[in-house]
Design a protein around this nucleic acid. Structure first.
Lengths: 130, 130
DNA sequence: TAACTTTATTCCAAAAGTTGAATACATTAT
DNA sequence: ATAATGTATTCAACTTTTGGAATAAAGTTA
């Protein structure tokens, strides 16, 4: 593997694009069928411009694609394997967290086990219809 | 998932640590049993100080651990799951590369298929003994 | 001890990433 | 056309990352 292996470089580019909490959460939200920008904005509780900026990073890395639907835009993961990477990252992080908890078993409250969802009311085409 | 989910944040930290071509190659070199710094230096063809700096990043992210053996230092992946992440990244990158090649099927030479190894002669405890 | 080998750290300047604010752009409704 | 809604881009400040050079530190050998 040469120093400037195109494979390694691209893999690093992918990792770099993923390597931000907001972008990681965005990808996570895109799991089933993608999500609308307004949904991401309310789900992550961040300013719309910021979400859009992060979406641009993901777009330029080729991890997501956008498709306009009238006034709204649907973002989808460009390849399911992207989520495989995300899953591997989350699995490792989860494992590490469990290990750290085991170390600091200083009788802290059990804490929520699962993963929470959403934070604000969303009116995107998908959330509205129900 | 809250905006500052510790899980997501840690997963992003992991991705960030991996998101550099040199560090990705380092992790790849650590596959079977780890590697010595001098080996990494010659295998990746980069100045020793730079390799050491990248190793520090990986160490601080908790992805590798170092163990001194006399004058040399052996680095090992701290958890096999780290390589699972690396594999997922490389697999996705490889897939994307194949797709791009399919698009640009302009009769370029087939090119090497496998992954090459090394570049300089290494005298680390592992390479020397044979 | 001195010389040598291997690895780690510090310093620093250049490059890249991040964010809020403002604004532009696209689409639909009035 | 104007207004309203949803999304994208630009700009400026700020923080972080990166890598070369020099040097320190740890361990070995003579």
């Amino acid at each position: 593997m040469p120093v400037n292996d195109p494979l390694t470089s691209d893999a690093a580019r992918i990792a770099r694009a993923i390597s931000h909490p907001v972008r990681l959460q965005i990808l996570d939200e895109l799991r089933d069928g993608g999500a609308y920008v307004m949904h991401l904005t309310s789900a992550l509780g961040r300013p719309q411009a910021n979400i859009s900026q992060h979406l641009m990073v993901l777009r330029e890395a080729g991890l997501v694609r956008a498709s306009r639907e009238g006034m709204t835009v649907l973002y989808q993961v460009s390849d399911p394997q992207v989520l495989t990477v995300v899953d591997a990252l989350l699995a490792l992080a989860e494992k590490r967290m469990r290990q750290r908890e085991r170390v600091a078993e200083a009788t802290l409250e059990p804490g929520r086990g699962g993963r929470r969802r959403h934070r604000g009311k969303c009116r995107c085409p998908r959330c509205r219809q129900q």
